[in-house]
Structures are given as C-alpha cells and as structure tokens.
Nucleic acid binder design. Structure first.
Lengths: 298, 298
DNA sequence: GTCAATTACGTTCTCCGTAAGGATG
DNA sequence: CATCCTTACGGAGAACGTAATTGAC
C-alpha cells in the first residue's frame, strides 16, 4: 500500500477529463508516462479502474468505488499541508505564555497587542502566575514559554536573559527613608517588612539579599502587589518590589525609592523546554520579545 | 504535494514508537533510510515534524497537527483498498440483471439463489422487462447485463448466445390442433392470434415468422403470459409462446404443442455494454450463467 | 564508552521521455 | 490515415543500504 499523491492526482485528472492526453498535460507528464502511471495505480490497488480503448475512457465499477476514496485522500493531503502552511506563516496558531504579575501588567500586554495586530489569526494566552508555577507550566508544556526571574534552571531549560530590572523601596511618604533619592540595601536595617508569597521569585530573591541585614517580619505574605501597597500605606511596614511592579503599588501617600546596589537587580529570563522547538507562532512571539526587550531597560 | 503512503506509514511508526531504529524495522528499511524518509517527509510538508536528538524523539507542535491528517490519510487508503479487495473477491458487491419474463420466472431465480449461497455478501437485482426496455437498460448502464432474444444488436453490445429455445402453440384443449404431437408454422394458417405486446421480442419475432401466413388478429396485445393464457382459455384465439413461457401459461383446458420448424427457435443472448468491463461480482454471475446455460437446452 | 540518529557514498530501482507499435473510426 | 492509447527502451534521479560520523548520557 504505497500510493503516492501523484498517482491520486493522475486518477482524478483522468476521471475528470476522460482523456489520457489532456490528463497527462494537467499532470505535467508525457502521455506515455501518464499511461504508465494509471497502470501502476491499477497494479497497486489490485483492480482495473478504467475501461479504455483508443477512443473512450470510462470508470469501471471498481473505479467508481475508488473515486470516493481518491477524492477524500486528495482532500486530506491538501488540507493537512494547507494547515501546516498556515501555521508556518503564522496565519493561524496559538501562543501561550506564563509570566510574573509585574510583567503581565503592562509590558507584555503591550507586546501581545502589537503581535495580535501583526498576526490577527493567532490566539494569545497569558498566565500571570508566581515563579514556581511558571517553572512548572513550562516544564509540563502547559505554555509555550515563560518569563521568570530565576536563573537557577539553566540546564533544565533553554533560556535567554531579556533584561535586568532594579529594585525599589516602597514606603509611606512620611517614612524616614522617603526623602532619599536612592539607598543601599543595608539602609533598610531595622525596618518592618511586608512580604510577597514565598512561591514568588521576589520573596526568594529578597530572602537571599536581606539575610545579613536586620529586618523585622510583619508576618504578612501577599500575592498581589495592590494588597502589598495597601498594607504599606496603612503602616504595617515597608516593602521592596521590582521596578515593573511599582505601578501596581501606586497609592496616595506612598513613595518609591530606587535601591542602588550591585545585588539588588532582578534578571528577567525567558525560558522554554530544553530541546523542544517552538511552534512558528510561539517562535515569532519569542523573537519579538527578545527584540523589544530593550524597552525594559529604560 | 507528492506524499507517498510509505512516508505516511513512516510518520505513524515514528509517532508511535518514538524510536527511529524500531520504527525503521517496522517499515522494513534500514535506520539510515528511515531517517532520510522522515527528512523527506518534513521537506515535502514544509515543516519540522519531530524534535529529536540522539536520545529523545517527540512531535513538534506542527507534528501534532499533521498527525491528525496522517491518520486520516492512512485510514482512507487502507479502507479504499480494502473495499476494492472485497469487491474483487466478491465478498461484497451488487449484480443487476434485466431479463424477459419467461426466464425471470424459473431458470434465473434458481441461478441467482445458487449464486447468493456462494456469495452471501452480494446484492442481487432482477428486472423482468420486455425486450426493448432490456436493451435500453443495458445501453444506459442501468443493469450490469441483460438477457434478450434478439441478435440484432451484435455490434452495439458484447454478447454470447446462451441457448436456443423452441416455440409452442398455446390453444384450448378442444382446438382442432390440440391433439397434434407437433406442427409447422404454416399449420397455424387461419387461426386467430392473441398477441404479446409489440415492445417484446416474442411479438417482434412472430411478426417476422408469420407474415407470409394467413393469421387473423384478435386485437389483444398483453404483457403478461398469464393474461394471454386466460384469453386463449376463453376462446379469444390461439397464441405462440417460447418454451420457457409455457409454465406461465398453464391453465386447465389449455394445450401446448411444440412447433417444429427451423425458423421457430428463439435465441437467448446475454449482452452487456461493449468495451465496458463488468464488476467482479457481475463477471462471476455472467460466467455462472454461461456455464449453466446447458440447463436450458434440456 | 556506548547507544542512537545522521551524513557520506555507492548501488539499485523507480519513474519519465522519446520513439515505435497497435487499435479504432 | 488520423487520432489516441500502449509498449519498448534508455537515461536521470530518487531511494536504499553499508559504513563512517556526530552527539548525548
């Protein structure tokens, strides 16, 4: 059972034209070759498909039967390849991304909106999740790729560094540090801290950075930056958030001061499953984000 | 778009096994050839279908898409060929025959019953029609072949002579010819004739045979032999019918006397459209009828 | 080092074109 | 004899196998 698409085409052409010479032309082969093709097809399927003499060509009873299948086969092949071409050209498709809440609020939506204008047929999905969950989704193939602040998965994933973002102190405008233009990590000594959840990369990174500094724990662990801002505004303590989360913390009476410290930077990695290729659509989105990552370093 | 069934098989084998070596074995080719086949397929469809290194093989996003089509294509090919094989072996099929009422009453049903026992999957159809309609049905392809008493279509059809049947006088038992053991056509001179319909071959043949003999016309033209018998029994005249119609004319008080005359024989031809092949099932039936035609000459 | 996929290269065979053959009207 | 399908035959290219190579664990 090794029928080539070519032979199917030959069958359909002859069925329609009922002329070897014309069907041969349509298939871009000589009449002789075409005759041989029909003979080969008949040998392969094990039945005579056309009754023919030098004047008349017509389907046999078996040819009539085979005709249905031939049309279906031709359609399946055409459709399958057309679908692949559409996906290859990003005419249709789907891109699914996991990203931390900070980037999901402004930069990513902007990029995705631009992408959607360029590729209207592509379906976009954005999961704003904490770091641990992001890693999990990428590893499981639940998303095409993810954005994440941890570099600890270098070997498990294919990744690129998109940008480095700074960290900011968030405090009440009347806090004793609120008037500073900038500060160092050690300046936070003695402060009470409102934390993000432990499963997020912010918590995990701060834990590392502040372990040698005398910080008091407010006891709060929140998952939304809005909540965090509310707590700080109501004097439960200060907090430290990455640059792109600041706008999520905007409340009257709050100040944000940049922390200028070698270590107080957050890498933003983009990562996907190692050794697995992206769909054309996902690849296009990946490339777009890499290209526009310079926006992030303003 | 010239994808061979072989390449589809290769795709499916690799999708299932996720091992080049094993899939190659299943396709009866060397690992090298198999690797080339996958590469060729990917070139033909214009997309990478498998992510692979020396350790792992997995479908790409595009491979997942193509998989659906590949399965459908493989099924279509398999089913199409299986159907043809079934028909070639007469496991399924349909045979449609047109025949004159005389043969449709006993001989053909017997042959068809035997055929049905030999090929239970084949659907049989019998059209008992007058000669003109029989010719028409064969010419139009409404039936696979027909049985007919006229030889006048030698060039228009492919035909074989199945048998020659004699002609019989049908008359009342008290008719003056009823006691004869046999008679000649000219013995009918002076009789009143009940005719079959003009579109039947019996009428057409008798018209020729009796044109030089002084026969009176009863005015009746009937299509059923039973009706004809009824008319004869009620003294509307005599009639002449072919051998195989006699049993359809059996009524109390009627006699049937053989007409022994060189010309008073009816050929029974089997004919089909010229240059057109029969379906395997129809061919099998055709052959059976040719083989068993000797029954008719008893 | 071992195992699995790929590449290199020579061979085989499929497939096509030119040209001759045969049937039909 | 003109047209159209088929057969014959030779060449180009595709497809396969053996063997060497590359890459991952």
């Amino acid at each position: 059972m090794n029928i080539s698409g070519r032979l199917i085409d030959a069958f359909l052409a002859l069925e329609e034209t009922r002329r070897f010479a014309i069907a041969a032309e349509r298939c871009h082969v000589s009449p002789s070759a075409f005759s041989q093709m029909i003979t080969r097809l008949e040998e392969k399927v094990g039945a005579r498909l056309f009754d023919r003499d030098t004047r008349n060509v017509s389907l046999t009873a078996e040819g009539e039967i085979f005709s249905k299948g031939a049309h279906r086969i031709a359609n399946e092949i055409t459709n399958s390849i057309a679908e692949l071409r559409d996906r290859a050209s990003c005419a249709v498709g789907r891109v699914s991304i996991a990203a931390p809440p900070s980037l999901s609020a402004s930069w990513l939506p902007k990029q995705m909106a631009e992408f959607k204008r360029e590729h209207p047929g592509i379906n976009l999905q954005l999961h704003d999740v904490v770091s641990d969950r992001c890693i999990e989704m990428v590893a499981n193939g639940e998303v095409d790729f993810g954005l994440n602040a941890r570099s600890s998965h270098a070997k498990e994933f294919d990744s690129v560094l998109l940008a480095q973002e700074g960290m900011f102190l968030i405090c009440r405008a009347n806090h004793y540090l609120a008037k500073r233009k900038s500060l160092k990590l050690k300046d936070l000594s003695g402060c009470v801290m409102v934390n993000t959840v432990r499963s997020g990369s912010v918590w995990q990174q701060l834990q590392e950075l502040l372990k040698s500094i005398d910080i008091k724990d407010s006891g709060f662990e929140v998952s939304q930056f809005g909540t965090l801002a509310g707590l700080v505004a109501n004097d439960f303590g200060i907090s430290v958030v990455p640059q792109f989360a600041i706008q999520l913390c905007k409340l009257p009476g709050l100040a944000a001061i940049p922390i200028e410290d070698q270590k107080a930077v957050r890498p933003i990695y983009m990562l996907k499953r190692k050794g697995r290729s992206l769909s054309p659509a996902a690849q296009a989105m990946w490339s777009k984000l890499v290209k526009n990552a310079s926006d992030l370093t303003i």
